[in-house]
Design a binder for these strands. Sequence first.
DNA 1: GGAATGACAGGTATTGAAATCTGTCAGCTG
DNA 2: CAGCTGACAGATTTCAATACCTGTCATTCC
Lengths: 199, 199
Amino acid sequence: MAPTSETLTAERILAATEEVLRRHGPAKATVVDVARALGVSHGSVYRHFRTKAALREAVTKRWLDRTTGVLAAIVAAPGLDPETRVREWLAALFAAKRRKAFDDPELFATYSVLTTETAETVVGEHIADLTGQLTEIVRTGAEAGAFTVEDPATTAGALFRATDRFHDPHYAREWELPGVEGEFEALVDLLIRGLRARD
Amino acid sequence: MAPTSETLTAERILAATEEVLRRHGPAKATVVDVARALGVSHGSVYRHFRTKAALREAVTKRWLDRTTGVLAAIVAAPGLDPETRVREWLAALFAAKRRKAFDDPELFATYSVLTTETAETVVGEHIADLTGQLTEIVRTGAEAGAFTVEDPATTAGALFRATDRFHDPHYAREWELPGVEGEFEALVDLLIRGLRARD
DNA sequence: GGAATGACAGGTATTGAAATCTGTCAGCTG
DNA sequence: CAGCTGACAGATTTCAATACCTGTCATTCC
């Protein structure tokens, strides 16, 4: 279709894959479609990705990693007190997921399917990344004497699981309901009170 | 098949429906199957339930209500301090759901599908029942001076949502993983610390 | 006469043949 | 000669014909 003369890179294939997925959905998007969108034969796609599953994993990872960067900035941001850092990180995670779901519903629905396919690998690593960031926040908060926690990783895991409803795509349709903001605030308040240092 | 001479009641139809659902699964269980299992014509089933959807809702409600009773006992149990009551109620909810998933996986998978069909009605009421029970526990705890909460219903909602992972069927496959007990305890500890009265 | 039946119309699932897709590879091309 | 192509085998998906199911109701049965 668009027979570009640029060299065929993994990134160009992934961008085309995402576009095909957005147009056709996860069930009907084929490797042949991706190749056609790039103006190459599907054999060329297989030079860069061993299988269709590997291509789907890569495009899913690419999508998930877009979120991770924003959040990392909050982990590293200087001058935030520990409670604010936790609150802002959780709020940013919720906001990022919700923005994705709202701005491009078709693509979000598509990736919601893809993430169930790759739950064990790509999604597992994504969750490990996120809980790792949260562990760092909890650990520094504990070191600063603001939080009382036995083990930062365990507590970070509990925080992440407690807020599942506000970042797991499974609950996406509830993110637009009136009152979610308040529900989110009430939950985060409760969790932060649980983190606070005790004498 | 079993041409019982007993009169045809809604309860007998629901029991037969559950059995048919267990055997055939949610996709292939038909009203004709239910009638055949009871030794009657399918027209007779329609005398008790207006539509197949109504039959499915009723059997789902029956299944969900089996859990509610056990938990109500904990709400009403005398001599429990507020923290213990919250902890035991949440633990009993988790245990009940997990037992259902473990004891009869086929039936659990079937009801997991049915609950997505009836999310707005039957499941909504079930969740309202449960958060109502939890609100009662939080309210009495606050009145006893053990908890500091602005609004018991809001806090109960936060507690319920925070523990989604341990009662939402969506996460059922994680309930058998090693370490879930510890994850559950860590989360409940954090939540209860958040509830505690502050000076 | 109140409950149950079974034929029926309209709609939804099943089935199997045909079309398409995945993944490979020998050969082409720049 | 590194990258790309397109024909191919086996697996999966699509599609249309058929079978079955849902919901109704005039009729039958105790």
